[in-house]
Design a protein around this nucleic acid. Structure first.
Length: 559
RNA sequence: UGGGGCGUCGUCAAAUGGUUAAGACACAGGGUUUUGGUCCCUGCAUUGGGGGUUCGAAUCCUCCCGCCCCAGCCA
């Protein structure tokens, strides 16, 4: 509770690691791993996991491996392998030459299984899946021993070898650990450790037709790589006795499994299966849809690795179930981008303004500060002329009493340009304002007021003849409720307005040749980046996140 | 209901029996400001509940309540 105490406070995993180092366990060595199954795209929940795994190794001078847990060829493929590598690298981690695959260990795993059989700790079971289920018992009733439980070592060895050589069809036999069918822990009721799967594997092809199960494979992978601290999520807590059992039976290097809570975020979902459903049903454009909590989606949206890492650091690590407020993630990206994103002018919903006392045909270049938070970002020149566009909602015919922007007879500042006063406006046949007539004060070039008069409102603008057209995509939360899984089908609460496409936007000329994905701020509107959908003819920008909007809050609090 | 885990501000999350229970986000109010942004200031919990141990309890004991996970030949 002292200030020193606060600074030294670390999460419970780091506490374990620090104690192990202090006590010289494994010679003070720290070696972690992140073991994704290549069966889908990574989301921000995975980022929490590998930031913990890799972050701990980095912090304590250890090493970390990336290991694909590819023990189920039915669900895995190379496309996922590639995307996972890309996403983790994007977050800034480098596992050097320590990229491994569980499938590289199949031979050794098979040999270990033979050892288990030899010592009577595993047997070939001929029960079909539904009977295994019956024999397993229930949460409250113990299971019964399989009739095949007491085969001889010789017969087991023979049968297991024949399973491997493809003699038996899928599902007809399994190799099972011989533990305790009456264990209160369901995981210990003779779990399957090998199943027959005549399916070719993305790395081992058709070399194998039996594949190891997670509980058996995972501890061996960790052991083979001499991982010291094997972190995983909380649902594996009651698999730990099994993890330990295999390693003890085999008497091999024994890592420590440590479990922590998964990440949940408000207004989104983190289940790979459900995210896949959104993709398959066309509810989003793909795994990298900017509304998705996937790393590829966040990247396309304009989130930076720095912001995501900052977020992961802020949410902490513990064991209790929790749901982090999306507002924290939004805070992190704003905070990062505020410091580094160069500012540009973009009018999303244009309203024409004519400066009647500004000469037609004239134009001048005005100096703009690129980033008020970063002097080294320098300045740029922006063209100004008689006809401009401003944001439609920066004008009110009958202004709200706290409205600081343009209205008939009112004066505002055009950012870094001039002070202008609205003298008239023109409506179309439907009664909508279609043009403002204003006068400018030539003494106020750059937006300063030599006479010292104060102007409350400052508007962004673009020169009509110089501005470049663009499409801007505004994103909102994917779901309308904090917890989409709380009731009924999660698709019921999908936010129908999570994507809004504005096709008539105008951006200042210098923003046209931004690189794809490069973060910028469109002044007063938020942070944006150019989308890969952009072409020579058509610019497309994604809004990463809006600026905090106090004005909107004022209006909301009034109602 | 068997087993395993977890309950501290609206949301995350510190605290390791010892002064007024950190901090961040959110929220509310105020100041500065050529972005209604940023920045700055202020406010904002006696720890799921009851008993007990102790000079002293979020921390220890006990009973209760609530939430999560487990009955794949998925991971």
């Amino acid at each position: 509770m002292t200030s020193a105490g606060k600074e030294n406070s670390v999460d419970f995993i780091r506490e374990i690691v620090e104690r192990d180092i202090r006590e010289g366990k494994h010679g003070g060595r720290v070696h972690t791993r992140f073991p994704p199954e290549p069966n889908g795209y990574l989301h921000i929940g995975h980022a929490k996991a590998f930031c913990i795994d890799f972050g701990i190794a980095e912090e304590y001078g250890g090493l970390y491996n990336l290991r694909f847990d590819d023990t189920n060829p039915v669900k895995e493929n190379i496309e996922y392998v590639d995307s996972i590598i890309k996403d983790i690298k994007w977050l800034g981690f480098d596992w050097e030459d320590r990229l491994y695959y569980a499938s590289d260990y199949f031979e050794r795993m098979y040999a270990y299984a033979e050892q288990l059989i030899e010592k009577g700790a595993a047997y070939v079971c001929d029960l079909p899946a539904d009977e295994v289920r019956e024999y397993r018992g229930t949460l409250t009733e113990p299971g019964r021993n399989s009739p095949w439980r007491n085969r001889s070592v010789k017969e087991n060895l023979d049968l297991f070898q024949r399973m491997k050589s493809g003699e038996f069809p899928d599902g007809t036999r399994t190799l099972r650990a011989k533990i305790d069918m009456a264990s209160p822990n369901m995981n210990m009721r003779d779990p399957a450790i090998y199943r027959i799967l005549k399916k070719s594997h993305h790395r081992t092809g058709d070399r194998w037709c039996i594949y190891p199960m997670y509980d058996y494979a995972h501890c061996l992978e960790d052991s083979i790589e001499e991982i010291t601290h094997s972190c995983c999520s909380i649902e594996f807590e009651d698999h730990r006795p099994l993890y330990d059992w295999f390693l003890d039976q085999l008497d091999i290097f024994h890592p420590q499994q440590i479990e922590f809570a998964r990440l949940n975020l408000t207004y989104t979902i983190m289940s790979k299966r459900k995210l896949a459903m959104l993709v398959e049903n066309g509810l989003v454009s793909g795994w990298d849809d900017p509304r998705m909590p996937t790393l590829s989606g966040l990247r396309r949206r304009g989130y930076t690795p720095e912001a995501i890492r900052d977020f992961i650091g802020r949410i902490g690590v513990a064991k209790r179930d929790s749901t982090v407020d999306m507002a924290l993630l939004e805070y992190c990206i704003r905070d990062d981008l505020n410091k580094r994103a160069p500012r540009f002018m973009a009018v999303l919903d244009p309203l024409k303004v004519t400066i009647e006392n500004y000469p037609a045909g004239k134009h001048e270049e005005l100096e703009f500060i690129n980033n008020p938070e970063d002097e080294s970002a320098g300045t740029r020149m922006v063209p100004f002329s008689r006809e401009l566009y401003i944001e439609r909602d920066d004008f009110q015919e009958e202004p709200h009493r706290k409205f600081r922007r343009l209205a008939p007879g009112k004066e505002v500042r055009l950012r870094y340009a001039y002070l202008i006063t609205c003298v008239d406006f023109v409506k179309d046949e439907n009664g909508n304002v279609k043009e403002l007539i204003c006068r400018y004060d030539p003494e106020t070039r750059g937006g300063s007021t030599p006479d010292g008069r104060k102007v409350k409102g400052t508007l962004h603008w673009v020169s009509a003849e110089h501005a470049v057209p663009a499409e801007v995509r505004l994103y909102d939360r994917l779901f309308t409720v904090e917890n989409p899984l709380a009731s009924g089908s999660f698709t019921d609460t999908i936010n129908a307005e999570s994507l809004k496409v504005l096709s008539r936007c105008r951006i200042e000329p210098s923003a046209a040749d931004l690189a794809i994905g490069e973060p910028v701020q469109f002044e007063r509107k938020g942070y944006f980046c150019k989308d890969p959908d952009s072409t020579e003819e058509k610019l497309v920008f994604n809004r990463t996140i809006s600026l905090r909007d106090t004005w909107k809050k004022i209006l909301k609090n009034q109602n």
